[in-house]
Amino acid sequence: MNTLVAFLTMVIFPGGLFLLFVGMMYEWLDRKLVARFQNRIGPRWFQPIADNVKLLAKEEVLPEGVHPQLFYVLPVIALSGALTAALYVPMFGFEPATSFNGDLIATIYLLSLLTLSMGLAGANTLDRYSLVGATRTLTQLFSYEAPFLLALLGPALIAESWQIGEINDYARDHWFILTQPIGFVVALIGLMGKLELPPFDAPEAETEIVAGAMTEYSGRGLALFHLGKGVELVIGLSLVAAFYLGGLANPIDFVVKTVLLLGFLASVQALMTRLRIDQTVGLWWRYGALLVLTQYLVVIIVEGTIA
């Protein structure tokens, strides 16, 4: 019986299929909001589902000169990394499906698997857009990863736990957005960098390098990467909401908080001009990382004086 429940948890609800569905819904909401900000109509609710169904049904073209095994396996790794990460996060306000001490670090690295796979996928092909896109993807990974990690470690430091579930419980009566506002902003913007959303979409800047690392992908591979991104969006939003917006106690809590965050993300996407990759890196290292470290200093000093 237990195995059956575990199986259902992982494959159907709240992990697996349901998570993919929610990921697509959040992607739709994001697109719709950006469209509305731009005075457009935007896609209808089933558009991401239709996109992915179509892509999954289509033939996957194997470009010349790629390593075929790598080409097929990278999207799978990307998606499975994201889905595995979901197990340690309080998705939809439920308790994490499984947890262990230090799962926060594991989750963050599972999430990076997607970016890493995309970078490798780009580097795997001979296409010049892919190569430039892959360079930029990895360059961006190196720049946002540290500030993003530091921003998520802030609440962990106070909660004195490296376990997402415990931090979530602790955060319920401590709104870290009030005590660590810089960390909140950096975490949110780090999430945008991670998902390559505008203005941090230099790795897939369509006016320069078409679709970046994804240029040569079609059919199933592309669909899996897309789904992975959708899942990562949901996980990222849940993490930030759980850590900084007073935790996730129940599904309603989850929906309200993450949708609010998504609205903020969408408005940033609409209002900002794309940054060049050198500007992105400069921004992260010069401001993002330094600000988070400064906040650390303040937190440690305050903690020290209180304790």
Binding site: R36, N39, R40, I41, V268, A270, L271, M272
Partner: peptide
């Protein structure tokens, strides 16, 4: 930063300008 935020809010209230 974000010099066009007023347009964005206005657009949310007024709805899209696309002709159906």
């Amino acid at each position: 930063l974000g010099g066009m935020w007023r347009d964005a809010i206005k657009a949310l209230v007024q709805g899209p300008s696309t002709q159906k």
